[in-house]
Design a protein around this nucleic acid. Structure first.
Lengths: 133, 133
DNA sequence: CTGGGTGCAAACTCTTTGCATTCGG
DNA sequence: CCGAATGCAAAGAGTTTGCACCCAG
């Protein structure tokens, strides 16, 4: 029943912390395996799930795609670029949401997830170029 | 190039409207096939995607699971029961969110998605019973 | 020692796609 | 007619799981 502190766990967690771009599980696998080729995809998935469940990392669910992970656990939100898929932080705190957690047809609210969709600066630029051409 | 009005499209859309419980694509397939066994899963998926793309239905992405669909297109949010997976509406309007759509590291915001997680009344009851036993 | 963790491959879930056929306009 | 839409089956992406082996405590 005792949780063990294995090399794999340390490597995956450290890798996630080092990757600041909200990587997908697959990107974490690739990054981990670039240095430790013997660590398997299943292990990385298992460790990421455990981190997300225990609150040591956030799972970010993007429309139409794989889950992304974020090692930052303080309350914040994410913008997802509809064009290139990049994910960025929205650091602005949304205090109002706290007061919204009621009037939900009898549900006991445990949490919420808020994500924005939009275009990142680069894709906006590309859009203008295409429109101009 | 002209979009056609097929029997399948009408059936899938009507079925979605009739199912008020935010069904998954699979549940729509099952419901449609209970009356029209020859309509294929692929067709239902294609039609649901088209409805979601054209704004005639909403796609609700739930943590760890299949997409749900909602024929209601007016602005509202959803609560997802972490225990039984049921999805319910949050009809409370969230005006504040409109003013949040800025200060997002240069992103041009096109939309956002807000979902709550919690326990539905039934699962709260079950939890109490288990705790008491 | 011992059972939690790992690696591998296979399985699984959800969704999309290639292709021949059908049928709405 | 003609090509958009369908049905089928197979493929695809992302993730989980069964099992034998391994190693942290």
């Amino acid at each position: 029943m005792q949780e063990r502190n294995t090399l794999q766990k340390r490597i995956v967690h450290e890798t996630l912390i080092r990757m600041c771009n909200h990587p997908t599980a697959d990107e974490v696998v690739a990054e981990v395996q670039s240095t430790y080729p013997t660590i398997s995809r299943a292990t990385v998935y298992r460790i990421l799930n455990k981190l997300a469940d225990s609150g040591e990392a956030l799972r970010i669910r993007i429309n139409n795609g794989a889950d992304h992970f974020d090692h930052q656990t303080f309350p914040h939100y994410h913008v997802h670029c509809s064009s290139c898929g990049k994910v960025a932080d929205v650091t602005m705190p949304v205090k109002e949401l706290g007061s919204m957690l009621s009037d939900t047809s009898g549900y006991k609210i445990l949490g919420y997830s808020l994500q924005f969709d939009g275009l990142c600066p680069e894709c906006q630029k590309n859009e203008e170029i295409e429109a101009g051409a």
